[in-house]
Simulated scan of single mutants.
Amino acid sequence: MALRVLELYSGVGGMHCGLAESGVAAEVVAAVDVNTNANKVYKYNFPHTPLWPKTIEGITLKELDALSFDMILMSPPCQPFTRIGLQGDISDPRAKSFLYVLDILPRLKKLPAYILLENVKGFESSEAREALIGTLQKCGYVYQEFLLSPTCLGIPNSRLRYFLIAKLQTEPFAFPISNTILEEFPSQHSIDPGRRRVIHCSENNPQAGADQKNPSCPFSGTDHGPEKTFLYKLETAQELERKQGQDNDASVRMLQDFLETSVEEMSQYFLPPKSLLRYALILDIVRPTCRRSTCFTKGYGHYVEGTGSVLQTATDVEIDSVYNSLELLNEEEKLAKLSSLKMRYFTPREIANLHGFPETFGFPEEVTTKQRYRLLGNSLNVHIVSSLISLLLQSP
C-alpha cells in the first residue's frame, strides 16, 4: 500500500522530487504553500497532486484528519533562524505556521508514522527546535538530527543544512540513533549503492583527498601551496587552503558534469562590466573542472556578493595572469583583463542540476529567470532528501 504523504511548505517540489527518487511507493495527498510563483512551478511539474495555496495555520484539524497521511515532509521558513537575518526565532511572525504544526500534531486522530524536516544551519540552536523536540517526545517519536551538505554525496556544491527524521517508537531506526547531530550518513549501507555513493562530508573535512592534485582547476596543485600562496583577492590564506582541499577531493564530482552542454543566448548570463569592476576581488571563481561551488542563494543572478560562485568559461586563460597586476591598470585595461576570463552566472537549470532535480523538472515560460533563481535559492537538495527518506523507511 502506498504511503500517504503531506508536503508542507512545498515550494517548487524539492521534497516531492526526493520522495520520487527514493523509489518508495507513495502518494502526495496534499501540498501546501502560499508562494504564487512556487505554486506555478509545482503545478507545472506535478499537475495531478492536490495543491493548497493557503496558509498552513488556515488548515483545520478536521481537514488534516481527513487526509489520513502517513508522512509529513516539511521545510519551514528559514528567515527566523538564518545566521545573516535578525534571528527572531519563534517571535518572528514567519514562524507562526510552524508553531501551529507543532500545536496541532498531538491532536491528530492518527499520528503520521514518519516526519522529515529541513531548515538552515542555525535551526539546531533555536527555540523552535526545542519546541519541535518537545512535541516529538510528547507524541512518542524517536528522531535523529543531521547537518548535511551535498558534498556528502559527491556533489560539488556547499549547502549545509539542518535535517531531522523522526518515526513513531513502534518502529525503530535501522541504525543506532545518537543524541548528537550527525554530520554524515550513519553508514554507506544506508543508501542504495546502485544509486549513489555516500562519502564523508568534504565540507567538514576540507583536506579529504588533498593528496590528489587537480592542476586544471585554479589555485590547486603544488605551485600554490601554503608557502607560495598568492593572495590577490579579499580572502585569507586559510580560505584559499580550504578551497584547494575541496578542489583536490577526487571523491567529489567535477562541475562540468552538471553544466548545460548548449545554452541559447548564453550572453545573458555573463557578468556585466559594472559587476566585473566592482566585485572582482570578492568573486568566488570556479572552472568546469573544479569540485566545489558556494551556496546559491535567492539573490543569485541579481546580486553578486555572497550569493554563489561564478563560472570561468575561458579555461585557456590563467586566472593568475589576469589578477596579478590588476591594481596597476586603469579601468579600461582592468575590464579587458577581467573580460578575458569570460565569467558567467550558472544558469537556473545548472543550479537545479546541482540541487539534484531530475532532467524532467522544468519551469513554466512565464516564470522569469530572476524568479527561477529566487525559487531555487529557497529550495533544497533532492538527493539528500531522497537518501534521508530511504534511511527513514529502512527496516532494522
Rank of each mutant, 00 (worst) to 15 (best):
M1I: 10
V5Q: 02
E7M: 06
Y9R: 00
E21V: 02
S22Y: 00
V29G: 01
A31E: 03
V32F: 02
N35T: 07
T36W: 13
T36S: 09
N37E: 15
K43W: 11
P47V: 06
T49D: 13
T49G: 04
T49S: 10
L51W: 05
I56L: 08
I59E: 00
L61E: 09
K62F: 07
E63A: 08
A66G: 03
L73M: 12
M74T: 00
P80N: 07
G88E: 12
D92T: 00
D92L: 03
A95H: 06
L99C: 13
V101Q: 00
K121Q: 13
S125I: 13
S125T: 14
E127L: 11
R129M: 08
I133M: 05
L136G: 01
L136A: 05
V142W: 09
Y143R: 03
L147I: 09
L148N: 05
T151Y: 01
T151F: 00
L160I: 10
Y162P: 05
I177D: 05
S178V: 10
P186L: 03
S187E: 11
P193Y: 03
P193G: 01
V198Q: 10
H200P: 09
E203S: 06
N204P: 00
Q207M: 12
G209N: 01
A210E: 14
D211G: 07
N214V: 07
P218Q: 13
F219R: 10
G221Y: 08
G225C: 14
P226Q: 07
K228N: 14
F230P: 01
F230G: 00
L231T: 06
Q238C: 02
E239F: 11
Q244L: 08
N248C: 15
D249I: 00
S251E: 14
R253Y: 06
M254H: 12
L255Q: 02
D257L: 09
E260I: 08
S262Y: 14
S262F: 13
Y269C: 04
F270N: 10
P273R: 04
L281S: 14
Y300I: 02
Y300G: 00
H302T: 14
E305I: 02
G306L: 02
G308Q: 02
S309G: 08
I319C: 05
I319Y: 06
S321V: 04
Y323Q: 04
N324L: 15
S325Q: 15
L326Y: 11
L329I: 04
L329H: 12
N330R: 03
L338H: 02
S339E: 15
L341K: 01
M343D: 07
R344M: 14
Y345E: 08
H355S: 11
G356T: 07
G356V: 06
F361K: 03
F363I: 06
T368K: 05
T369W: 08
R374P: 01
S379D: 05
N381P: 06
I389D: 03
L392A: 03
Q394A: 12
S395L: 07
